[in-house]
């Protein structure tokens, strides 16, 4: 007999070991997330996928589904908190969508639209983060990093290269390149690496290809993130 839990009043089937977000996405129900990726171990850091399980908050990417759970996700209260988290991500970095080549393909931007974020609300930090353009084929724009660690996990777990790492603590946490010089050119990263493909924002970019896709044909021009992700199950 199929086991189920309840998500916003709807019965969601799950298999043993599945997390709440895995089961929800498999059932075509979108839970906002940024650091979660189905191909990698959960990180539980962005907290956007927070849901209430039997009245208590938890990250749906790390909590295993259990039969009979009462899960709330798409509520005004939880979405307001997700929106505040997203606003904090925007002000902590330099996210200038108008001139960002990832605009229209960016998960952070699409999530902000999904959550109805109308302004950054908080004061901008405006950190000074120069780009690393040393690599002949790739550009690193640290201004847009949201510390999801997907590139860290991809490089370590799939590419076996450990090109990226998160350094520092708390508010000082930042993405670094694992080379003595700290420059991407001095690593063995390659265009085909998983770490290059996985960035949900506009940090790791293939050089000289920006804006090649016209407006109207970008990922989230075609459908909002909730539909796109629910269809793809990612």
């Amino acid at each position: 007999m199929t086991q189920t839990f309840t998500l916003d009043g709807k019965a969601i089937p799950f298999a043993d070991g599945q997390t709440i977000i895995q089961a929800a996405l498999a059932a075509g129900v979108f839970i906002p997330h940024l650091c979660y990726h189905p191909e990698f171990k959960p990180h539980g850091s962005c907290k956007l996928c927070t849901v209430k399980v039997n009245g208590r908050q938890t990250a749906s990417c790390t909590m295993r589904a259990a039969a009979g759970m009462q899960v709330e996700s798409n509520t005004e209260e939880i979405n307001a908190e997700r929106r505040a988290l997203t606003q904090m991500l925007f002000v902590e970095g330099n996210h200038f969508c108008p001139s960002c080549e990832k605009s229209g393909d960016c998960q952070l931007q699409a999530t902000a639209y999904h959550l109805g974020m109308m302004s950054p609300h908080f004061d901008h930090f405006f950190p000074n983060r120069p780009v690393d353009a040393s690599h002949p084929e790739l550009l690193l724009d640290f201004n847009r990093c949201i510390l999801c660690s997907l590139c860290v996990r991809a490089s370590r777990d799939v590419d076996g290269k450990n090109v990226f790492a998160l350094s520092g603590r708390g508010i000082k946490t930042h993405l670094i390149v694992n080379a003595k010089s700290g420059r991407l050119a001095d690593t063995d990263i390659a265009l085909g690496d998983k770490a290059v493909q996985v960035c949900p924002v506009g940090v790791i970019l293939r050089k000289r290809t920006g804006f090649a896709v016209p407006i109207g044909e970008r990922t989230y021009d075609k459908a909002p993130i909730a539909e796109t992700v629910a269809q793809e199950g990612t």
Partner: peptide, 14 residues
């Protein structure tokens, strides 16, 4: 200054 060149036509129109 400090931005990649392909970004400039989109940025400066602002």
């Amino acid at each position: 200054q400090g931005r990649p060149y392909w970004e400039v036509p989109v940025m400066v129109q602002r």
